[in-house]
């Protein structure tokens, strides 16, 4: 029982973290149709920016400033790089973000070195929040969960309840019409890209000190965010949310199971936990290519 509840809690925590990581990617993909391979790199950049800014002005201002700064970089990249690549089609765009990921990693190497930086959780959020059975639950994790849920609410409201959201949605399917109505569609896309990148950076500011801020952190999360987006349905924020929670809970529970796999003497279910998300993604692509809540085929 104890293990069940702690695992459930850990699973939800992990799921919300996954959502935080992938919401920006979903936003960019659903609104612009761009699969941003450099997404995890912006997450990493967010962590490093968060580290530098918080060492000057403290963690809370950094929580705002770092995503703004990285988001601005993202917007500039869209304006002066991606837009040109876009003209040559989706493949060029994809390759552009792919190259960007390597570029960002090298820049991080050059500026901050290859070793982890001492980016720490602020004292006000350090320490246990409550005790569940014998285990304590860290305050910082609760904070991460709150930010993640907040992100979902804000995104949902922005896209469905505001004029900007309406325009963005319209621009996705009928860009010419929206343009004809006198709206600046390229600028809209630039804002969306900057926003998505900013969300990745926000996740970085929060995830960087919860785990380790080092140049390998982008590669570590790079693949899992795609799983979330594919399983959730390319382009669906709610889908990504549901998929994040499902994957988080499933993976955490798998770790807790010690049964041996049938026909494999050496392998327990818990050892397969890390591959489960990828298994789900493959199965999902076979059975339902548009994902849980996707609105269109890839």
């Amino acid at each position: 029982m104890e293990l069940f509840f702690t695992s459930l809690l850990n699973g939800v925590t992990y799921g919300l973290l996954l959502f935080m990581l992938s919401s920006g990617l979903t936003l960019i993909f659903s609104m612009m149709g761009v699969l941003n391979f450099a997404h995890a790199s912006f997450y990493m950049l967010g962590a490093y920016f968060g580290y530098v800014i918080s060492s000057y002005v403290g963690f809370y201002p950094a929580l705002l400033l770092a995503p703004l700064a990285v988001g601005a970089i993202g917007a500039l990249i869209e304006r002066y790089g991606m837009r040109r690549a876009h003209a040559s089609g989706h493949l060029a765009e994809l390759l552009f973000t792919f190259g960007l990921a390597f570029l960002i990693e090298e820049v991080v190497h050059l500026v901050w070195g290859k070793s982890p930086v001492p980016y720490r959780v602020p004292p006000s959020l350090d320490g246990p929040l409550f005790t569940l059975f014998s285990a304590t639950f860290p305050t910082y994790k609760a904070f991460m969960m709150a930010v993640s849920v907040g992100m979902l609410a804000a995104l949902y409201a922005l896209l469905t309840r505001t004029r900007v959201g309406l325009l963005v949605q319209a621009a996705l399917s009928k860009p010419d019409m929206v343009e004809a109505l006198g709206h600046n569609v390229p600028r809209l896309f630039m804002l969306v890209f900057g926003g998505g990148v900013g969300l990745a950076a926000l996740a970085g500011v929060i995830g960087g000190n919860a785990f380790v801020t080092e140049p390998g952190m982008a590669a570590a999360v790079g693949s899992i965010v795609f799983v979330v987006v594919v399983v959730g349905g390319l382009g669906s924020i709610t889908g990504a949310f549901v998929a994040s929670l499902a994957i988080g809970i499933l993976q955490t529970f798998a770790v807790a199971v010690d049964y041996k796999l049938p026909f494999f003497d050496r392998v327990t279910v818990s050892q397969t936990a890390p591959v489960l998300p990828y298994l789900i993604m493959v199965l999902m692509l076979i059975a339902r290519p548009r994902g849980l809540m996707g609105t269109r085929e890839t």
Binding site: L3, T6, Y14, A135, V221
Partner: peptide, 18 residues
């Protein structure tokens, strides 16, 4: 557990605790 791929050990610690 997989080498150099686990980001959050909380699930493993929960097992040790249990």
């Amino acid at each position: 557990h997989p080498l150099a791929r686990v980001k959050d050990f909380a699930p493993y610690i929960a097992k040790v605790q249990a």
